[in-house]
Structures are given as C-alpha cells and as structure tokens.
Simulated scan of single mutants.
Amino acid sequence: MKIKATLERIPGGMMVVPLLLAAILNTVAPELLRIGNFTQALFVDGSSTLIALFLLCTGAQINFRNVGVSLGKGATLLTTKWLVGALIGLIAYIFAGENGLWLGLAPIAIIAAMTNSNGGLYVALVGQYGDKTDRAAYSLLALNDGPFFTMVALSIFGAMGFVDGLFSFVSFIAVLLPIIVGMVLGNLDEEMRAFLDKGSSMLIPFFAFSLGMGIDFVAIIEGGLSGVILGLATVFLTGTAGYFVFKAFKWNPIAGAAEGSTAGNAVATPAAIAAASAGFASHVDLATVQVAASTVTTAILLPIYIGYLVKRLEKKGTKIPDDYVIK
C-alpha cells in the first residue's frame, strides 16, 4: 500500500488525515483508546510531548545566525493575529444589539477565538510547508496561549481594566526551552543536527492524531451556526492577513496563513475573563460553545485552506517551501 504517497497527495494530508480520523473516533467512541498505559500515552495524551520533541528537532536545524529571522516572524505573526482579532472584536462591540451580541456572536468569543491560535496545528503545517525559521517562530507565538491578549484587547477598548497574573513568564520559557536545547545541540554538532532532522517530519502525523483525540464534532452542533461562522472568520480573516503580511516581507506566505486557527485552550478564556470581571458572566456559556465550535472548525478547515493556497502558488510557479527556505 502507498500510504505515505497517498497522504502527500492530499493537501496537508500528513496533518489533516490523522487529525480527522482521530476526531471521528473521539466523537463516536471516545473511550476506545483511553485504556491507559502506552496506548493512551501515545494516541490520546501524547500531543504535548510529541510537539515538544518536534520543537527540539526543529530547534536543532536553526543556525544561530538565523535566530533573528525566527523572532521577527513570530513577532509579526503575533501582532497580525492580534490586530485582526481585536479589530473585529471592536466592530462587534460597536454594532452589538441590545442583547450584547453581534450577528449572534458574543464579542468576547470573537476576541478569544481570533487572537488565540492552535500551536500544534501551526507547527504541523509549517513542518510540511515551512522552513526551520517558520517552525522556530512558534516560541514567540506561545505568548497568545490563554486569555492574556484577549484581556489586553478588552482593556484597550475600555471594557475592563487590565488584570495582572494572566501571563506566566515561566510558561513561556517552558515552551521555548525545547527549541533552545535543540539549537544548542545542533550548533555544537553537525551530526546531531542531521540526526535530529529526521524527527521533524516523522512526528507530524503522530501528534496530529493525538490533537484530533481532543476534538469532538458535537462542539460544532452545540456552538451552532454562529460558532462555525466564527471559525470561518478566524481562518479566512486572520489566516489571509498573515498570508499577505508574510508575502509583503518576502517570507513564505503559507507560514503566515498557518496561524489562522483557534486553540483548544481558548475555550476556557471566556470563563477566565468572567472570573476577573463579573460584567461578562451573562455571555460566558454562549461564548464558550462558540469558541469550542471555532476550534473544531478551524482545525478541519485551515489545513484544507493551506492546501488550496499552496496549489495556487504552485500554479504561479512558486515552489513551497523551496522558494522561501533560508539556507
């Protein structure tokens, strides 16, 4: 059987096929692989460990002279993602009806979903379509995990005061450290760099499957059409913005588009904000299911959108990622 060749013919296949298979399995038989020991550790609970190892392998491919490029890409993506999400959230607040909703969406859900991104999905996509500096940019993108940037947007809008304690510097370092370890190993020994290079692509389908085991298609139903619309907006607005910003900088635009997702941990953001300010309590339940629906929608749609963008560039004679690889 030509499993690998078949997956490679599907846009983002190494990522999207295992993820969708796992999501289907998690929806119809969630306990099937949750039997403990090695099976559950690899196929259900392994995403964090596998992604950490992926980042270490990726870090080993980074030459110290290219660190600035990675940080520049990460900062650019972080800023673009936040600006688009915050702007749409501001529009939602301005035009919200008497019930506090805009087009059926809670503004807090819009900001939470659109300023946050699925790091696992990003590293999987740039692992297939990006270069080492695109992958290393994730170390900075980890800043948008959790409610921190949602709170920043709300404080700027005057909706609530800035709340301390929502960003952990230790958590940021914990994300960055595997990349640093990989960088040190790769720069000290070229043979270690070559050895660890093999892990970068090999790990993608495994942590994609594990990520899929955290997706339940029921979330789309519970979130309703409004949650799906939020997911579509996240992919096509933040992803497309990242695409054109990266293209303007003459960086791989596919890496820019790969940030157009909503992370699973964003589901907890509305509750975290309501805990800090009771004024948001009335929309917590609705916002939570809308963000959950956006998470599932973006996890499915973004790899397909990325595949479309890749084919579009290839038709114009641009090879991805070859034409944007920093040697």
Score class of each variant (00 low, 15 high):
A142H: 09
G279C: 04
V267W: 05
V228K: 01
K81E: 07
T79E: 00
S226F: 03
L53N: 06
F169D: 05
S282P: 00
V175N: 10
G317A: 07
L32D: 04
P30N: 14
R135V: 14
S48H: 08
D134V: 14
L237W: 00
I215M: 14
A266F: 05
Y93G: 00
L177E: 08
L143T: 10
I94L: 15
L90Y: 09
I156L: 15
A272R: 08
N144S: 06
C57Q: 10
S117C: 10
A29H: 14
I111S: 03
I306A: 02
K327Q: 05
G186L: 13
I62S: 07
Y129R: 01
L125V: 11
V123L: 15
G158F: 01
L225K: 02
A92M: 03
L301W: 02
I108N: 00
G212K: 12
L177C: 08
L21Y: 08
M192W: 08
M114E: 04
K327H: 05
T238N: 04
A52V: 11
A233D: 03
T297V: 02
E98D: 15
L141H: 13
L237S: 09
G130N: 02
G212D: 10
L87V: 15
I304V: 15
P303N: 09
I221F: 09
L177N: 07
G130P: 02
L25Q: 07
E8A: 11
G13R: 10
L121I: 12
M114V: 05
G161T: 05
P321V: 02
K319A: 05
T297F: 03
T240H: 01
L225W: 09
G307Q: 06
D164W: 01
M15G: 07
S168R: 11
T150D: 00
L121C: 09
T150E: 02
S226K: 03
I180S: 09
T76I: 13
A124G: 13
T288S: 11
N63G: 13
M114C: 04
T58L: 12
T288L: 05
V67R: 07
K311D: 11
M114Q: 04
F95E: 02
G161N: 10
A266D: 05
F148C: 04
G158Q: 03
L154K: 01
G12F: 13
M15S: 12
G256Y: 00
N118K: 07
V152A: 01
G224L: 03
V267F: 05
A276D: 06
G231M: 08
F172S: 07
G231D: 06
T318A: 04
K132D: 08
F280N: 00
G317Q: 07
A275G: 13
L232N: 03
A287K: 04
V16Q: 13
A113T: 02
L196G: 09
K4Y: 12
L105V: 01
G239S: 07
V289W: 01
L55I: 15
P253I: 02
L19W: 11
L309V: 03
I111C: 00
V184Q: 08
V291L: 01
F167L: 15
